[in-house]
Design a binder for these strands. Sequence first.
DNA 1: ATCCCGAGGG
DNA 2: CCCTCTGGAT
Length: 221
Amino acid sequence: MSSIDEQVQRIRSMVLPSGVLHGDPFQVLIKTILSHRTRDETTDTAASRLFERFPGPRELKNAPLEEVETLVRPTGFYSVKAARIIEVARIIDEDLGGVVPRTKEGLMRLPGVGPKTANCVRVFAYGDDAIPVDTHVHRIANRLGWVHTTSPEATESALEAVLPRHLWVPINELLVTFGKQVCRPVRPRCESCLLADTCPHGSAHSHVREGGIVKRHFENQ
DNA sequence: ATCCCGAGGG
DNA sequence: CCCTCTGGAT
């Protein structure tokens, strides 16, 4: 019927990813740590101000904690984030010769770097093939029935098995944009979704019959 | 399972 | 006022 490739093509016709996260590995890394549970516009402005003051690991590792906290405050979790990025800067400068790790294991040894952040650096800084699984990718891959998983990490390995390799890199930005505009966490816009006919989440078995009329219901309304 | 936590939208 | 936002560590 409808292959994953065909479904992705339809998603492409619905949304236009912005794709602003590229460049120097250190800045991609720090920016991604700051982006945790934070809107990306907020992350962007905070990161710009931070790098204006402390451009690289050498400068950031000696930065006063309180000043860094003030700079990253708008992103929330400012206390943990400030401590994390200063420590990350120190490790990279002193232990790793100024080089941001390129492997998932190496990246995940850094404080504040989990699977999603590690893969963001591999993809957006080094151009390697990886699938950063955030809440959008996890939610949508399950809604579409591509995977049946309960954790983002399980989703990552499951997706590696079913997603054609050429989609690994683009799938994150694509589903994130799709997830914000159409397939939202709450009250998804199934009426204007081109996948509604084949989507298990919005079709047959999630329907409930009411007075002969088929009505959609979702877990969060 | 809980905590970290500001900012913006409904 | 209540909710969520491209998580990670305990």
